[in-house]
Design a binder for these strands. Structure first.
Lengths: 198, 198
DNA sequence: ACCTGAACACCGTTCAAGT
DNA sequence: ACCTGAACACCGTTCAAGT
């Protein structure tokens, strides 16, 4: 890459990071280009889609979360490792308001620039979940995709200004559902059935 | 209202309902006006905001859900009434893809045309929750706002194409968290504590 | 190679002008 | 009263023209 192009790219990333922190991931790309004193077409040439720009900004975070999953796996109890990692995932998304919707779309869209990162994240969660299930401390009727969906839903709650105040508490509520209740462990790791529609 | 205005209004509502069913609540208002063979400004004069248009379309549904809450309260067990009503709420939102975000925004925005309906819905859920809590079948550390947030999160899951397949199952998971586990009823209606961060 | 202004097809908002 | 076209300020996409 030519030196001037590299400089433009780095500057665009710095400006984009600031803009997203302020306004969320839906911030106008035109606005980012303006703030970077660069033509909009230049931004689009470096990052052809919004997702491509986000990948460049977030890949470090994704790596950190994946690494952390591995560390928790060896240094914490199966239960604490799973819950702590889930908490870290949800907490991380709050730095990028609106990213949850894009991640939910990317997990099944192999064309999305975010796809690979989302799949890796799901796999990391699935490993921690399987370990907890094997230890008998997590319900066995959910898998990595369910876990990904629950993280996304809790992250989405944190994104909504009117609901964000309850996000932490509701994380605990959902976490309690994922973890097998020790008092009912003899039922095979699942909850009592939920009543069906009347 | 003049006869021609009434006719325009009714026609706009019919077209808007069809358009939203197809494309979700974010459908272009210009597109609705075009399909109704009416000027965009005419649509905006009848319904000054997207929320106002939605209220006109949804107020019947809101009323039905509120009525149903009252019926469940007298004809079902506290546990079945709460869960069945929650299920109905989530199922209803799937007919209006994207409405969850607007409802989350409206619940705390007294200026929103959707505000009153959302508050009424929350109150109906709060009554069913209080009844279940009094009967000892629902955890006592959540309130109507938590319930509203959980419904919204589950409805949001159903809105995401990649996660929708898990929405029903995850509803059961979350419902199991709301309902007190009979095996641990002696703990006072709350779950065992969730491990905190490592 | 890399950058950019300009044209394009969209969006919701507003309002003066019509009937 | 009610309706509407047109102007406005935005958006992301695309590309011919510049350096």
């Amino acid at each position: 890459m030519r030196a001037d192009a590299r400089k433009n790219r780095d500057h665009l990333l710095a400006v984009a990071g600031a803009a997203i922190t302020e306004q969320g991931v839906d911030v106008s790309l035109r606005d980012i280009a303006r703030r970077a004193d660069v033509g909009l077409a230049t931004l689009l040439r470096h990052f052809p889609t919004r997702e491509a720009l986000l990948v460049a900004l977030l890949h470090t975070s994704f790596d950190e979360l994946t690494t952390k999953a591995g560390e928790f796996e060896t240094s914490n109890s199966p239960e604490a490792a799973l819950v702590s990692w889930l908490r870290d995932c949800v907490a991380w998304t709050t730095e990028y308001r609106g990213v949850t919707v894009l991640m939910a779309a990317a997990i099944e869209d192999t064309e999305s620039a975010l796809h690979a990162s989302c799949v890796i994240l799901r796999a990391a969660g699935a490993r921690l979940l399987a370990r907890a299930q094997a230890a008998g401390v997590a319900r066995t009727d959910i898998d990595g995709t369910d876990l990904f969906a629950l993280i996304a839903a809790l992250a989405w709650l944190g994104d909504q200004p009117s609901l964000a105040a309850r996000a932490d508490h509701l994380f605990d509520v959902v976490a309690s559902a994922i973890l097998t209740n020790p008092a009912s462990a003899d039922t095979g790791g699942t909850r009592p059935p939920v009543p069906t529609r009347s």
